[in-house]
């Protein structure tokens, strides 16, 4: 499959600071690709380079078969961009935001108007069409931003931290909309520091830290490779966690101590919990859960995604 995005040794430096440090990845048509990493990992910088608004310092980058350095307008005309910070025109109505934005792509006004109607339905904002953007909730603004990014029927939709700052319900509504796009075959590129978001939306992802790619694969692959099937979470109280972790270390191949809990990695969490109880230790709370990308990140970097 010929990729829609292809990066080789892609690098961006700002003076001394290396924001993106020689990353390689490819995105296939129709794929939903994620960049997962903590704030400051270089995700947004990568997105800006793919979006042809920031020149790479070195390396190779091809988007839709074109070089962003020479064909910025061409690439941007086929991308949909959902930025991290909303930049809707708050003085215009919801509908006018879509129409005005469509004009930037040279789309004739009647076509913009027709698409705006469809997109407002898609974003479940049809009843807000004539409302000023200022009056929308955070979740509605995000949905409008996504609708706006679709006005040019983009080949690739790029979403930078799409649900940051939204409440859980608004996040689920948004994920549902994005999932529908994915089902329709839209190529998605998503950055996120939420593991659940990455698991929900991405077919394949790269874990990024300090501008480098730490691992690559589908969420399930990454969990299989870098973690166990299950995780046992135990809380003994913040003063005892570290000491208990030492006492329990021999029960499992790998464990982690977080400020508020001890994580024991095992394929059968209940069995390990039983052995913990056999030793007469009685944690305040215990929880057996499936491994997540959070565990993968912890394994790869020694740090939590959200700190």
């Amino acid at each position: 499959m010929t990729p829609v995005i292809q990066a080789r040794a892609l690098t961006k430096t700002y003076g001394e600071l290396v924001a993106v440090d020689g990353i390689d990845f490819e995105v296939a048509p129709g794929e939903s690709f994620g960049l997962l990493g903590p704030n400051g990992a270089g995700k947004s910088t990568s997105m800006r380079m793919i979006g042809a608004v920031s020149q790479r310092t070195s390396g190779e980058l091809t988007v839709l078969g074109l070089d962003p350095d020479t064909h910025g307008p061409e690439i941007r005309s086929r991308l949909g961009v959902v930025p991290q910070e909303d930049n809707l025109d708050t003085e215009l109505t919801v509908r006018d935001n879509l129409i005005v934005y469509g004009r930037y792509f040279g789309i004739p006004r009647p076509v913009c108007a027709a698409r705006a109607t469809e997109l407002l339905d898609f974003a479940e904002l049809a009843d807000k069409a004539k409302v000023k953007v200022d009056e929308l909730s955070g979740g509605m603004k995000r949905r409008l931003t996504i609708a706006r990014a679709l006005i040019n029927e983009p080949a690739v939709l790029m979403l930078d931290e799409p649900t940051t700052g939204l409440d859980p319900q608004a996040r689920h509504v948004l994920w549902d909309r994005l999932f529908r796009l994915k089902e329709r075959g839209t190529t998605l590129v998503v950055t996120t520091h939420y593991m659940d978001e990455a698991e929900q939306l991405c077919d394949r992802l790269v874990v990024v830290d300090h501008g480098r790619i730490m691992a690559e694969g589908s969420p399930a692959d990454l969990i299989r490779t870098y973690s166990t099937r299950e995780v046992l979470e135990l809380r003994f109280g913040s003063t005892r966690n570290a000491q208990m972790a030492v006492e329990l270390a021999d029960l499992v191949d790998r464990h982690e101590v977080l400020p508020d809990r001890v994580l024991l990695y095992a394929d059968d969490g209940e069995a390990v919990l039983a052995r913990v109880r056999d030793r007469g230790l009685d944690p305040t709370t215990s929880l057996v859960r499936r491994s997540s990308l959070e565990d993968v990140f912890l394994r790869l970097t020694g740090r939590s995604l959200i700190e």
């Binding site: 048509p29 074109l66 040019n152």
Partner: peptide
Amino acid sequence: RTATDELSYRDEALAAAVRP
């Protein structure tokens, strides 16, 4: 749309940017 459309992605992009 499939991978065989890669050329058309490029062509689409070249055409779409003419007016902007």
